[in-house]
Simulated assay, not measured.
Amino acid sequence: MRDTADEHVEAWGDELPWLDPVQEAIIVRLAVLGRHLTQARRAALDAGGLEHGQFKILLMLRRGRPPYEAGPSELADRLGLTRGALSARLGPLEEAGLIERSGMDGGDRRRVRVRLTGAGNAAFERHATTENRGETALLATLTPAERDTLADLLRKLVLSR
């Protein structure tokens, strides 16, 4: 069975005799799968009416334990954003009812908490479920042992960087 990576390697094999065909096939296949996952995630976000940055905020809030809340500075740090960039992303989420900002107990209005609402949690669940279905379908062709092997090999590559 041949794929586009085989065609790519074959096309370049004569032009670049120094090219390692196995290495090139691996890199091309990783790129193809990366594009596939990116497109599938984008489609899932579009279907749910979320932007990538908005979903990441919901994700970061949901990663914690109930009541799924964090301070703006903590969220900005986790997401690698400036405080201003985070604030700009929080506004539309708050207007959509997906998050709420509230003052800390004790009345200190300088300290704000960002909390995932019920609607925000439902939006997160819908998107995560849709994304998971696509990922499951992608990996369905592999046996459980093959998935374990692939996960181990990819971990080894990630840790080497």
Rank of each mutant, 00 (worst) to 15 (best):
L37T: 04
A44V: 07
A119G: 07
A5H: 10
D6P: 06
G120V: 13
R155H: 06
M104G: 06
A70R: 15
G118F: 05
G53L: 06
P92V: 06
D105P: 11
L154M: 12
D20K: 04
R126I: 02
T136C: 03
P66I: 03
E7H: 13
P92G: 10
G49Y: 05
L116Q: 07
A119L: 14
G84E: 15
G84D: 15
R89F: 00
E74Y: 08
R83K: 10
Q39F: 05
E15D: 10
T117K: 02
T4R: 13
G107D: 14
S102P: 00
E24Q: 09
E69V: 08
V32I: 08
H8N: 06
E24N: 07
R111N: 08
R29P: 00
A43N: 09
D105S: 13
T130P: 00
K56D: 14
R115C: 02
M1R: 09
L90E: 04
R161F: 07
V158M: 05
Q54P: 01
F55N: 01
R101C: 05
D3H: 14
T129V: 07
L81R: 13
D108R: 15
R62Q: 14
A128F: 01
A76Q: 03
G71H: 10
R41L: 04
R78C: 05
R63E: 12
G97L: 07
G120E: 07
G106I: 08
G106D: 10
P21D: 08
E24W: 03
T130E: 12
V9T: 07
N121Y: 14
T136L: 11
I27Y: 07
G118H: 09
R89W: 02
T38M: 06
A140C: 02
G106V: 04
D152F: 00
G53A: 14
A25S: 15
A88P: 02
R161C: 02
A31F: 02
L98P: 02
E51T: 09
T149E: 12
R78N: 13
E131T: 10
R147A: 11
L139I: 01
R63L: 12
G49T: 09
A88M: 11
G13P: 01
H127Y: 13
H127L: 15
N132T: 15
I99F: 03
K156I: 00
W12I: 08
P144A: 03
Q23G: 04
E146T: 06
D77H: 02
M60K: 14
A43D: 13
N121F: 14
E51C: 00
L59I: 00
P17Y: 05
A11K: 14
G107W: 12
L142V: 06
D46P: 00
G84Q: 15
E10F: 08
A140P: 01
N121P: 00
T149Y: 03
G34A: 04
E95T: 13
D108W: 11
A122W: 01
R42I: 01
R78H: 11
L81V: 03
I99D: 01
R126C: 01
T117M: 08
E95G: 10
G118L: 13
V112P: 00
N121H: 14
V158C: 01
G118T: 15
L93I: 09
L45Q: 03
L150K: 06
